[in-house]
């Protein structure tokens, strides 16, 4: 999955600046790593935890993980960029994941995606400039029985139509911008 650097760095401040002076999430991450014995084969588990805590993996965070597990940074960057699940850019306030699995696709997922792209003005893999919405695609979320499915902020929603997705997206984008 492409992760374009669509947002300016100001929209979400880098979390690493507070470190080591006190961002407690680093401490939580360290404890998590220790629970895995700081084993190098737990790298993916630790990246999952880091993304859960911070929302995305920036350079400082990846270097911190490399130091904690005593791994070369190249190995940590290599793994973090290999897997689609990990994102190195900040995500928007809301996420919309359009499932592009075969069952959803034959039931019009491509039209849903085009609808969201039109309504939001961004492409799959991008985040709106006001950091309200990140648009993503999934290869298959396994909800084929209720296709086409869209995941709004982690909530799988069945049998979506272009009208339904437009409503959801518009509500998010307009919210708070008077």
């Amino acid at each position: 999955m492409e992760t374009q650097a669509a947002t300016s760095p100001e929209t979400v401040p880098s979390k690493t600046e507070k470190h080591p002076s006190g961002d407690s999430r680093f401490r939580i991450l360290e404890v998590f790593a220790k629970r895995h014995g700081c084993r190098q084969d737990a790298l993916i588990e630790i990246l999952h935890k880091a993304q859960e805590l911070f929302g995305f993996l920036d350079e400082g965070l990846l270097l911190f993980i490399a130091r904690t597990l005593k791994l070369p940074p190249s190995r940590v960057f290599g793994v973090a960029t290999f897997y689609h699940h990990f994102t190195l850019t900040p995500q928007g306030e809301h996420t919309c994941v359009v499932c592009m699995g075969t069952a959803c696709y034959v039931k019009g997922a491509d039209r849903l995606l085009a609808t969201v792209e039109k309504a939001s003005g961004i492409k799959a893999g991008e985040t709106t400039s006001d950091a309200k919405l990140s648009l993503l695609t999934a290869r298959c979320i396994g909800a084929c029985g209720i296709a086409p499915a869209v995941v709004y902020d982690g909530e799988v929603t069945p049998r979506q139509t272009p009208q339904a997705v437009t409503e959801r997206i518009k509500a998010w984008l307009n919210h708070g911008s008077h």
């Binding site: 592009m100 699995g101 075969t102 069952a103 290869r139 298959c140 396994g142 909800a143 084929c144 029985g145």
Partner: peptide, 11 residues
């Protein structure tokens, strides 16, 4: 790691 799109047996 049920990766095939359109498959949800293992899930």
């Amino acid at each position: 790691d049920e990766g095939d799109p359109g498959a949800f047996m293992d899930r």
